[in-house]
């Protein structure tokens, strides 16, 4: 059977991921929530490492921690003044939705642990062979999904720039020399 024998790393990584995810959805200060996403993403990268998906450990750290998280923090810091962190950050449906999520998660967990999964007996390839196979698949058999993903990224890039560009001309900054001359102020 291909089961993973290391229990302690799995428990540490799961606790890190789920604990910081809980902080992300509950903490009042939204910038803190953004920063708590970092241990969560790193915990998921650790779980990928336990699953021997070596390439995706690197991708997770590079894309999620390096790109998406920085983008999120950038947007959070641009808009953080509009949400007062002393007021509740959740709507009034928070309790029923929380109960529903707990019940649903418990049901799914019961089903998943009750099922007898047949583990594959295939060997897990070493990291260099695995990554080489993935690269060859991306330019060979799976070239079309790869190209569609790149077109999607290009469309998202152009769309994000068009959406974020302001339509109005930005107001000219008041020059400090104009304030010294009261006559030159516009009516």
């Amino acid at each position: 059977m291909n089961s993973i024998d290391s229990h302690l790393p799995f428990l540490i990584m799961s606790a890190l991921t789920l604990g910081s995810a809980l902080v992300v959805v509950r903490v009042r200060n939204i910038v803190h929530a953004g920063f708590w996403l970092l241990p969560c993403f790193l915990g998921v990268a650790g779980l990928y490492a336990l699953l021997q998906a070596h390439f995706f450990v690197v991708v997770q750290v590079l894309i999620y921690v390096g790109a998406i998280l920085v983008l999120m923090l950038f947007a959070l810091m641009l808009t953080q003044d509009v949400m007062n962190p002393n007021k509740p950050q959740t709507n009034r449906m928070s309790l029923p939705i929380g109960l529903f999520c707990v019940v649903f998660a418990a049901g799914v967990a019961a089903i998943l642990t009750g099922h007898q999964w047949m583990n594959s007996r295939d060997v897990i390839l070493p990291a260099n062979v695995q990554t080489r196979q993935l690269g060859q698949a991306l330019i060979g058999e799976y070239a079309l999904p790869f190209e569609i993903a790149s077109v999607l990224l290009l469309a998202a890039l152009v769309g994000a720039i068009v959406l974020a560009k302001s339509e109005k001309e930005p107001a000219p900054l008041p020059l400090p020399s104009l304030e010294a001359l009261p006559d030159s102020k516009p009516e």
């Binding site: 789920l18 959805v25 939204i30 959070l76 949400m83 950050q89 709507n91 449906m93 939705i97 929380g98």
Partner: peptide, 14 residues
């Protein structure tokens, strides 16, 4: 489910 809880209950769009 933690993510779904946050998406349903958070007020801040980000």
């Amino acid at each position: 489910m933690i993510g779904a809880y946050g998406a349903f209950t958070r007020k801040n769009a980000i």
